[in-house]
Design a protein around this nucleic acid. Structure first.
Lengths: 346, 346
DNA sequence: TTGTAAGCGTTATCAT
DNA sequence: ATGATAACGCTTACAA
C-alpha cells in the first residue's frame, strides 16, 4: 500500500494488456506523475528523464489512455457526427470533408448513422452517453432533443439544417440563392414551362428541399412569364425516376426540370432517356442541386449547384471549437454560397 | 469531506454542466452507488427507489458517463474503423454496413479516414490512444503496426484485406473465385481477346487487385484459347478512363475488358463511349468487380461481381465480439462468395 | 436493499 | 525537477 508498486498489477502477471503510466513509472524508477509529465509539451521535466521514460514507454507500448485523460481534463477530444444513410451513401464526400476537418483539429470522430432524417431517436442515447466535445448534426433535431445537449454544454453545429436554437450554430449552403441562380439560368435559356421536383410533400417548412423549392419559385416568379408545376418525390434516384414517369404519363413534357437535389435529377434524367426516349437537353433540360460526384460524369453532365462542402466542413469544426472556448457567444448562422456548375444537361 | 456532498460541486454553482451520479444521489437522498445500480439491469434494487432515482436522473438530464464506465469495466464499447478516402467515397455502402452491424451490437464507431491505403501511419496514434474494444481495418497494416494492437489485446479484423497475423482475423470476398466466375462468363460469351485493367503496377502481391487479376488469369488460362493483355492503372474512375485511352491509342480493341473494380470499369466504359465512340457491349464488353450502386444504373448496366457487403460487415463484427470474449481462439479467415450480376455491359 | 470504500488511468496541485 | 496526493465519474466488492 505504501509502496510504489503499481496497484493494477499485483503479481508478476498482468491483469490487463495495455500498459499504464504506473507500469512505465515502475520500470523507469520514477513516479507516475513524472511519466505523465513526459507526455506533455512544455512541462517542467529534464530532457534526460523525459528521454529515458519515453524510451521505456515505447518498449512497453505505452500511450496515455485518452479515456482516463478525458475524465480529468473534461475534454474528450471526440466530436459526434450524426448523418443519415442517405447522406452517407449519396454524398460520402460530405462525411469525408467533416472527417478531414476534424482530423486537422486533432479531434476524433464518433460517427453515428441513422436510417433516415427522423430516426435520430435511435442514436440519441449513444450520443448522450459520451461526454462529447461537440456534435455535428446533418439531420434535424427538435427542440427537446437539442436541449439534452445544450443542458450538458455540448455545442451543436447543424450542417445544412436550418435550425436556430439557443446555444447552437449552423452552417448552411444558401439554398435560396443557389436555387435563384439556377432559376436565372433556366429563364435565360428561354425555358417558360418548368417542372419542379421537390422533396417529400410533407417535408417541414424549414427543410432543405423546401428552401430550395421556395427559392427557385420566388426567383422564377420575379423573372416572370414562367409556368411552373411542382411534383413531390422523396430524395432518392428512384423517387425522381418514378415520380417523373408517373407525372409524364398524363402530362405534357416541360421545357426544363429543376430537381431539388442531384439524386432526383439523375433519376429523372434516366427516366427521360431510358424509359421515355427523350434526349437531354434537346427534348428537355434537367438541373439539380449538390454537385455530387456522379453529376460530373459524362453520362450525366448535370447542370447543378455545387455545395462547397470542404469549406463548410472546416467552418463547422471552427464553430465547434469556438463555442467550446466561449460557450456564451451569440449563436451564429454561417451561410455559404452555392456555385452554379453549368454542364450540358441544361 | 466526511459528508455526502458531491465533491465536484463545492458551492451552489456547478463547475461542470453534465450531471454526475453524485448529483443525482444528492438530489435523491441516496448513495452514489445506488444511482449506479439503478442504471444496471438485474441489480438488486427495489423498484420504488429505482423509479424515484430514474425520475430525478431524467430531470437532471443524467446518463452514466461512458468514459468513466469504460475506465472501470475495461470495455470502451467503441470499435475503431479505418478506411481509405477511396473506399469511403466510392463504396459508402461498406461503411454504412459496418456502422449498422456495430449499432446492432450496441457498439460505437470511431471512424478514421486515411488519405490512401498506405497512409495509415497518420491515424495510428489516434487509434492507439483509445482503449478500443476492437479495430476493423479496411486498409493494409504491416506486421509492426499490427503488433501495436495485438500487444494491447485489441482484436483486429481485416475487411477485404488478406492479412494473416497472430491474433487477428479477416473477412474476405473470395476474389479469385469471383474473378473466375467472370472469366467463365466472358469465355462462354465467346470472347477470346481480353484486356485486363488491373490495379497499380506496384500493388503488393496480396492486394485485392492482384488477387482478382490473378484469379481471373488463372481461370481464363484453364479455359484456354484466350489472348490476354494486362494494363495497370490505379483504382479510380479517372485511372480507368485514362489508362484505357492511352492503351487504345496504339493497340487494337479487345473483345472484352475485365476491370478489377467497378470504378475502373465505369471509367473505361465512359472512355469507350464518350471518347472513342464505341458502343457497349456491341463493340466491346466491359466487366467490373464490387457492384457499387452506380453499376446498376441504366447508364452503365455493368456486369460485375457483387460483394456481399452486409453479411461481411455482420460477420466482421461477430469476429470482433468473438475474439473479445475468447482472445486465444485460433485465427479465422472467413471467405464469402461474390455473386455474378449479369447486366448488359458484357 | 442499501451504504462505504476501493480502484480504473489519467492530470493537476501541492510540497519538497 | 520530481514525488505525493487528490480528483474525474463510474462499477463493484464488502459491510451493514
Amino acid at each position: 500500500m505504501a509502496t510504489k508498486e503499481p496497484k493494477n498489477q499485483p503479481d508478476g502477471e498482468k491483469r490487463y494488456a495495455r500498459a499504464s503510466s504506473y507500469d512505465v513509472a515502475h520500470a523507469a524508477g520514477v513516479a507516475q506523475s513524472t511519466v505523465s509529465r513526459c507526455f506533455k509539451e512544455d512541462s517542467n521535466i529534464s530532457e534526460s528523464t523525459r528521454a529515458r521514460v519515453l524510451k521505456i514507454a515505447a518498449e512497453l507500448g505505452y500511450t496515455p489512455n485518452s479515456l482516463a485523460r478525458s475524465l480529468i481534463t473534461q475534454r474528450s477530444n471526440m466530436v459526434g457526427v450524426i448523418c443519415s444513410e442517405f447522406t452517407l451513401c449519396n454524398n460520402p464526400e460530405l462525411v469525408n470533408a467533416i472527417s478531414s476537418a476534424l482530423k486537422q483539429a486533432n479531434i476524433s470522430m464518433l460517427l453515428m448513422i441513422v436510417e433516415n432524417e427522423s430516426a435520430i431517436e435511435t442514436t440519441l442515447p449513444e450520443a448522450l452517453a459520451y461526454p462529447l466535445d461537440g456534435l455535428i448534426s446533418c439531420v434535424f433535431m427538435d427542440e427537446e432533443q437539442i436541449q439534452l445537449f445544450v443542458k450538458r454544454r455540448v455545442p451543436i453545429v447543424f450542417f445544412n439544417r436550418n435550425i436556430r436554437s439557443k446555444g447552437t450554430d449552423c452552417i448552411l449552403t444558401d439554398q435560396a440563392e443557389g436555387s435563384a441562380q439556377m432559376a436565372s439560368r433556366l429563364h435565360a435559356a428561354g425555358h417558360r414551362r418548368i417542372l419542379c421536383v421537390g422533396g417529400p410533400i410533407d417535408a417541414p417548412e424549414d427543410s432543405v428541399s423546401r428552401a430550395r423549392l421556395k427559392g427557385f419559385i420566388e426567383a422564377i416568379d420575379k423573372l416572370g412569364g414562367v409556368d411552373i408545376t411542382c411534383i413531390h418525390a422523396g430524395y432518392t434516384y428512384e423517387n425522381g425516376r418514378d415520380q417523373f414517369l408517373s407525372y409524364f404519363a398524363d402530362s405534357a413534357l416541360p421545357e426544363a426540370i429543376f430537381c431539388v437535389n442531384d439524386q432526383l435529377a439523375l433519376g429523372v434524367m434516366d427516366a427521360c432517356r431510358y424509359t421515355c426516349n427523350l434526349s437531354i437537353p434537346d427534348a428537355v433540360s434537367v438541373a439539380g442541386f449538390d454537385n455530387v460526384s456522379d453529376a460530373g460524369r459524362p453520362v450525366y453532365n448535370l447542370t447543378t449547384i455545387h455545395q462547397q462542402i470542404v469549406p463548410m466542413a472546416t467552418r463547422a469544426v471552427d464553430l465547434i471549437l469556438r463555442r467550446i472556448a466561449q460557450p456564451e457567444l451569440p449563436e451564429e448562422t454561417v451561410t455559404i454560397r452555392g456555385i452554379l456548375i453549368a454542364r450540358t444537361s441544361a
